[in-house]
Design a protein around this nucleic acid. Structure first.
Lengths: 182, 182, 182, 182
DNA sequence: TATGAATGAGTCTTCATTCAT
DNA sequence: AATGAATGAAGACTCATTCAT
């Protein structure tokens, strides 16, 4: 993929996450290119949004692949997934905002990934690592919510970027309460 | 507040959370009124969005008041807050999606509440209930993210509505991992 | 005609002459009645405008009748016509603004009056009282223009109401230049 | 000023003078452009009307400058002013119809011109050329009224365009009555 | 008779998109 | 590749009108 295209996508994701009604004009300006260029890269607004979704899904898939969710301790695998997702958290935040993913018959690509993440949590439960009273579906959803919240918090400067992975992982895996045995 | 108005707001929040670019026509249809009536209630799209924000903030404030965050065990207070927030989770999900809140110079009303929630987590840390390695700012953000994720999951039918409070509370307070001592 | 109706018409004429795009709401307010009352008097906006035209035409016809344009010196007859028109100058100003009169196939009623006024000027020419190098059509048009200008000038307080008739008459009949013999 | 813009303004003035309630659609059609293009030229209806006023005022100012109202015989200066105004009579007719000019606190630009015209008539009176029993204010108003009436008469085909200047001048300066001494 | 709610039918305005420069 | 003009299509908004109170 051309660097240009990637750069435009990144800017578009950031803007559309904050302001879903942004016009093509605003998107072009935010990306620092002209309207014409924007239209040459993406044939239209719908195409841009679809490209954004596809890119986010592809990147998350790569993160998931690299995290090797089937290997080793499930908790460690979750940690790896969060760490790998961090660089593309902006795209993920856009995806989570775009709830239409779930609406229009559920996006095939995303669905596939969703199942793999749920499988990871299920494996963790079966291996006695994760609690049984929280469903894999909810743990998956919570993972998304925390990654999104983390991305926003970083973007708004409320937490440091370097802490993103640790904070999300710790909260998801360990929870907020102090452990007695520590 | 008139029931009509409340009803329209609720429908608008639900729709806009799922589809932030929904047109006034779609919103009106979702609320079961005509476009013109929608415009009589809210002078324009911006006004509607602002009303939605204000309503969400006011409702969350009520939830916060009722949760008495200064009383008793901090973890229990968080649980109460989550429970009280559940009925207005739809509005909160909208608020979290509307990241513009933070853009336009930070909404005064929201800021006030944010500080109170952070104070609750800080108190919990000082009383030895919450971990010290996760900042109150992040715990607060995570609370929002989980409430939002829970609301979406319920709305999309992926988790049962009655489980909402427990799931959010358990995950936030206890985390995903199994406790040895339990 | 009811006094109410006349009063509403007068207010509507004054407002619509100054602001042709005034809404029914504004007209009602200007007349000091409610929208409902306005709608009871006139079945709709179009009906109101038509009533305004009809009223203006009827009143001008009455003025023309009372001026007895066929009798005596033509210049005196013109003076009488101007004097009689003064009380309804507001309606006439509205009519002149409403050039649509001439557009839509020419209003029958108005056309009839127009011909009578032109006939008066023609008679004056034939009797050697009026100049022959200005057509009756133009003299008629000029009469309208001056009555309208006079009405506006009075309404805006640039000339005194009591001077209206004399000023219009003098200018139309005598012109601006000083007469040697005077 | 671009020719496009001028062309659109001219068409708008002609249409709005005849039908003050014309929609943007009708105006666009009359100018031979699309609604969207009309909106690119003028940011809205109000802006268009204001541009029309400004243009009319600017053109009248040019006519006034070129007529050199301070030079020579006052009557001749009036004649020159009328002659110079003829090409922009359409815009002037629009201005006179738009009585709102006087409403909104009196338009500054117009006011300036008004004063200059009144000064011309006053000079004529002081130099013994114009009658003293008609105020400069009224003579000025009458000039506007006759120019407007002339423009309408020409537009509606009731008098020939080439006669416009002569007819307005003769009537304003000489009046309708026959002069004995001529 | 006045007021306020409700809405269908427009009117105004913006936007995505194309094209020419 | 960028810019500005042009416009069809869509969305936002207003208004005349009706009805209930």
């Amino acid at each position: 993929m051309s660097l240009d295209r990637e750069h435009v996508l990144r800017a578009a994701a950031a803007l559309l996450t904050r302001k879903a009604t942004a016009s093509m004009d605003e998107i072009a300006k935010a990306a620092g290119v002209s309207r014409a260029t924007l239209h040459r890269h993406f044939s239209g607004r719908d195409a841009l949004v679809r490209a954004l979704e596809d890119h986010g899904i592809a990147e998350f898939e790569r993160a998931l692949d690299e995290a090797r969710p089937e290997e080793g301790d499930a908790a460690e695998a979750v940690r790896r997934l969060i760490a790998r997702s961090e660089p593309v958290a902006g795209f993920l935040a856009f995806l989570f905002t775009e709830n239409q993913l779930y609406e229009a018959g559920i996006n095939e690509g995303w669905n596939r990934l969703d199942i793999r993440v749920q499988a990871l949590f299920r494996r963790g439960q079966e291996e006695g690592v994760f609690r049984l009273d929280l469903t894999p579906a909810w743990l998956t959803e919570a993972l998304y919510g925390l990654i999104g919240a983390g991305a926003w918090a970083v973007q708004d400067g409320r937490v440091a970027a370097k802490d993103h992975t640790r904070m999300v992982s710790e909260l998801l895996l360990g929870g907020a309460q102090r452990r007695m045995e520590r």
